[in-house]
């Protein structure tokens, strides 16, 4: 009897202990256990009647104690909480499974073409999960490769841009240097020309100084080449003057007394001589010009290939001679035929 009484009591309390209502409840159960052994000992020593009246009272008291210690008995709230917890766990699992299916679903659908609709959810998911994961891995790999290549391209781009900038800078520098170079060359040329001019001036003054001290051998030549009939009379001297320029004897002969003060315009020749020479040169040049023109004129006549009658030719020659005189006078500025100017 007692064990049954105590038993069911202990059995009933089991789950309650499992719920963990605290140390007070354990103390009560411990107390109940101890009271039970004490009552059993009492009944064995004095017969079952001795404790018969006591047992229900103790049980009642213990139950009250238990109620006080453990709190309210497992009520609907606790049960519903447990149920809710269970439900939650179940829903979570289902949710997880659905999620998995959903993730593998779209991949699987294009995989097995016309795959059986009747197939269960789980085999289908298992069927498609394997290749999709492989593909995913491959995709990831591909993405990595493209990312890396893009990065490399960007780096190359940057490098190229930098290099082109460097080239531009170098070209600019080159241009600047070329400009500087050109300027320097110009300056050099200018300086050289100035130097040359200075040197010429120097040598001219030198020559002038020398000329005043020692008349050049050209003097003899100049006299020989003087205009007029003297030129014809002394061709030998002229030839000698040109042929053997500056024989020391000639020069010594022509030497003026040394220590003569230098005079401007005294350049070996007298001024009159130089003027004569120039005048003659101008005449000769004028003649050359006229003869050239005349030649061109007759050449043209010949080229047009027509004969001028003798009489007309004679008249033409006279006219030409007259015109030539006029032109020559104009060119040389001589007074004759001045009215034609």
């Amino acid at each position: 009897m007692e064990p049954r009484r105590v038993g069911p009591g202990a059995h009933c309390w089991g789950p309650r202990v499992a719920t963990g209502s605290g140390t007070a409840a354990e103390l009560v159960y411990h107390l109940a256990g101890a009271l039970g052994t004490e009552l059993k000992e009492l009944a064995r020593r004095f017969g079952p009647e001795a404790a018969a009246g006591l047992v229900p009272l103790v049980v009642q008291a213990l139950e009250l104690l238990e109620k006080a210690a453990v709190g309210p008995a497992p009520d609907s709230l606790q049960v519903s909480a447990q149920q809710a917890e269970l439900e939650l766990r179940r829903l979570r699992e289902e949710n997880e499974r659905l999620c998995r299916e959903l993730r593998s679903g779209p991949q699987g659908e294009c995989g097995p073409a016309g795959g059986g609709e009747a197939q269960g959810l789980s085999p289908r998911a298992a069927n498609e999960n394997a290749p999709s994961s492989e593909e995913r891995a491959m995709l990831r790999q591909l993405k990595e490769v493209t990312d890396r290549q893009r990065d490399e391209l960007r780096a190359h781009n940057r490098d190229l841009r930098q290099r082109s900038q460097e080239t531009e800078a170098l070209q600019e520098q080159l241009q600047r240097l070329l400009l500087v170079n050109a300027e320097l060359r110009h300056k050099l040329a200018a300086v050289q020309s100035q130097l040359r001019a200075a040197r010429d001036r120097e040598s001219e003054s030198e020559r002038r100084r020398e000329a005043t001290l020692e008349p050049a051998p050209e003097q003899a030549q100049g006299q020989a080449a003087a205009p007029g009939c003297e030129q014809r009379q002394e061709p030998e001297t002229a030839a000698a003057g040109t042929g053997a320029p500056g024989t020391p004897e000639d020069r010594a002969d022509a030497l003026p007394p040394p220590g003569r003060p230098p005079k401007v315009g005294q350049c070996g020749f007298s001024r009159e001589e130089v003027e004569q020479i120039l005048q003659e040169r101008n005449e000769l040049k004028a003649n050359v010009f006229l003869l050239k023109e005349e030649l061109a004129y007759f050449q043209r006549e010949l080229l047009t290939d027509h004969r001028v009658p003798g009489l007309l030719l004679e008249a033409m020659k006279v006219a030409i001679r007259k015109q030539r005189k006029k032109i020559k006078a104009k060119m040389l500025g001589t007074p004759e035929e001045a009215e034609s100017r």
Partner: peptide, 8 residues
């Protein structure tokens, strides 16, 4: 009459 050839 002009003895001069045509100009260049």
């Amino acid at each position: 009459m002009n003895i001069l050839a045509p100009v260049r």
